[in-house]
Design a protein around this nucleic acid. Sequence first.
DNA 1: GTACAGATTGAG
DNA 2: TCAATCTGTACT
Length: 190
Amino acid sequence: MKKRLSRKFYKRPTLKVAKELLGKYLVRQMGKKKLEGKIIETEAYIGPQDRASHAFGGKITKRNKSKYLEGGHIYIFLCYGIHWQLNITTEKVGKPECVLIRALEPPNQGAKLKRVASGPGKLCRWMKLSHSFNEEDLTKSQRIWLEDRGVKILPAQIIKTKRIGIEYAGAWKEKPWRFYVRGNPLVSRK
DNA sequence: GTACAGATTGAG
DNA sequence: TCAATCTGTACT
């Protein structure tokens, strides 16, 4: 079973989408080549009240404006001047909420664990994602989209932790808004 | 205009 | 432990 996720899937509460994205497949079509991987780690950013979000306080900049798009679009930005971070918008237009995709599990190739997408920056480098994907519509794009392949992640398999790399965010850094699949060796930060 | 820090990573 | 090096923000 392969079914592209619809607009409806994304236009729901961000935390719900972040959890349900676990087990879904991210597919990247590059000409005749196709890269794909199962999502195993996500984080939710829920502005404008979330201090860790780029949309904190409701501000809009050239960089973050795609965060305000209708659910199902891409918000991608450069971090530390080097690494791209892939986010998927949620909720309706004007709500600056999104889910950061932090790690993928690539298809088994010779039973070797491939840590090619075990972190948000590595994931984008592997799939060759950058600025040109900003504002891409995941329900229509021919080069990147998400699929439901019938993989079910049970609530008992989902681990919740604090988000990573946001020490400056005060009380917000304590929010258990990072989700990953229990026991998966390919999540970020070995 | 200058200065500084950040949703990270891999090398030392 | 540190440097890579782009963008936004808070200053002068």
